[in-house]
Simulated scan of single mutants.
Amino acid sequence: MKAILALFCALQLMTLVAPSAAAYYSKYNRNYLKKLLLQLDLKLKLHSKKHHINHSSTDRLKICKESSSVIKVYHSSVIGCPGSWTGHIRNADLCGRGYHLCNKNDRRSLLSKITYKDAIKIPGCYAFNAAHDFYKCIDCENRTAHDDLAGVGRACPIKVERRTSCITGGMIDAAKTFESYSHKRACQYHSGISGVLCCKN
């Protein structure tokens, strides 16, 4: 009986106190919400400023000079950058800061890490400054026996498995034929090439 009476008194007290408590809470809540909104507005402004700075920095450090599209060939160490060039592939200026046009000197450190099986899965055809004449990894030059422009990608014209080249396990040429020099197209761009291969410095 005492327990029931105590419960009844508590309920009565709540009905008396609740309206004033609700009013106090509402006032407190409004003040708190106002402060919260001011803090949030300040944080949003700071975030916007920070984001703008980062965005500008990213633009200055683009991996590919002429495109925001990047094809990862071997992690972030070897990438494909879309674009074209005029004349010898050494004239291709498509790699951004921190990267250079891959060449025969990158074979041991980077190019050999690319396997033939992985290379033929890459969409497009990305050339680099080397030649695969007679299954070697040599300089690409405008002369016979040095004119088979190297590349990676499923769209490259020439693909031969289990042959020595700059990559491992096979040979891929960006050149249209084995006689590029005789056609005066040695180490040059053609419409079947998607871009160039860039190696990290």
Rank of each mutant, 00 (worst) to 15 (best):
V70Q: 00
L40W: 03
S191P: 05
H75A: 12
T15N: 07
T168I: 02
K176Y: 12
A10M: 10
V196H: 07
D173Q: 08
Q188E: 14
K200N: 04
L101H: 03
A130I: 05
S57Y: 11
L36S: 13
A175P: 06
C64S: 02
L110S: 03
R60E: 07
K184Q: 09
L110W: 09
R90Q: 12
L197D: 05
D139C: 12
E141G: 01
I53V: 13
N54D: 11
H146V: 00
S191G: 06
L16W: 10
H75D: 15
K159Y: 02
L7Y: 04
M171Y: 08
A119T: 03
N142Y: 05
I193Y: 09
R162N: 15
K34D: 14
S84E: 07
Y181V: 08
V70D: 05
G124E: 01
N54A: 01
L16Y: 11
L46C: 02
F128L: 08
K35S: 09
H183M: 09
H47Y: 01
S69M: 08
V78D: 04
T164I: 08
K45E: 06
T86G: 07
K49P: 00
G87F: 06
A145D: 13
T168A: 12
S76M: 15
H88P: 04
Y28E: 10
V152Y: 13
H47S: 04
R154P: 03
Y181D: 12
Y28R: 10
V70G: 05
N142C: 02
L111R: 04
Q39S: 07
I4V: 11
I71H: 04
H55P: 00
L16G: 12
V17P: 07
N29A: 14
H51D: 03
N142E: 15
C102A: 15
S20D: 10
L149A: 04
A22F: 13
A10L: 14
L38D: 12
S69Q: 12
G192D: 09
S109K: 11
Q188D: 14
S109R: 10
Y74S: 06
S57F: 13
I63T: 14
I122N: 05
S48N: 12
P123V: 00
K200W: 04
K72S: 14
K49Y: 01
K159M: 13
K62R: 12
L101R: 03
A10W: 07
G124I: 02
T86R: 11
F134W: 06
D173C: 15
S69G: 04
K35Y: 03
V152P: 15
K65R: 13
D139E: 15
V73R: 02
S191H: 11
R97V: 08
I114R: 05
I53N: 01
L40N: 13
D41L: 01
H88M: 05
K50V: 01
A3W: 08
S191Y: 12
T86F: 09
H51I: 01
C199N: 00
L11S: 06
L13Q: 09
M1A: 11
L111M: 14
L42G: 00
R90H: 10
I138V: 10
Q12E: 09
C156H: 05
F8N: 03
C102R: 07
S180M: 13
K43S: 02
C166M: 07
I172N: 08
S69F: 11
L149K: 02
I71W: 03
A3F: 07
Q188T: 13
W85R: 06
L13N: 05
S48C: 00
K27Q: 14
S56C: 10
K184N: 12
D93P: 00
L42P: 00
S191A: 14
